[in-house]
Amino acid sequence: MFDLQPWPWYITGPMITLTMAALLLIGKRFGISSNLRTMCAIGGADKLSDYFQFDWKSQRWNLVFVLGTLVGGFVAKGFLLQDAPVDIHPSTAEALQAMGVQDAGSAFAPGALFGAEAWSNPVAMLALLVGGLFVGFGTRWANGCTSGHAISGLSSMQWTSLIAVIGFFIGGLAATHFLLPILLPLL
């Protein structure tokens, strides 16, 4: 399976289902953004809001899961995935290059945001910080992210998760088509 570089969707998707099913059979659930709440609670946020006053110790297993994913990223990127650029659609790469993202089509992630040069670029730092803030605020407001809503919620046929996923796309499409054309040339 590791000869396939990168993994096609029909391996990646089922492996995600496998993760969810295994967690459920162990007696846990597949939802990653709740770890953000747990981390804030551990950091002392319970003094600022009762939202963080809960038994976070019962959520320690989920932090262990996140630690595993982090090591998984290290192992996969360092040893399994050969240094292949992400083969995005030519018109996607063209659109990005026109906005100044020169490594589109020839890198795994845009260097302007994730390479060492990002540290000295205030626009990149601000984009990551504010973008991250939206991720944290939005997933907690929506009570779930891609794992909790798009995968767990949709597969257990909950229409409220479909509403959340529609929201993900309203926001994602708006940012991609109206915000990024302004932001990316500034990087």
Binding site: L113, A127, L128, V130, G131, G132, L133, F134, V135, G136, F137, G138, T139, R140, W141, A142, N143, C145, T146, H149, T160, S161, I163, A164, V165, I166, G167, F168, F169, I170, G171, G172, L173, A174, A175, T176, L179, L180, L183
Partner: peptide
């Protein structure tokens, strides 16, 4: 779910 999802979606697209 709709509003929080929309806010998250914007952050998802940027980061």
């Amino acid at each position: 779910y709709l509003l929080g999802g929309t806010v998250f979606g914007m952050g998802w697209a940027v980061t």
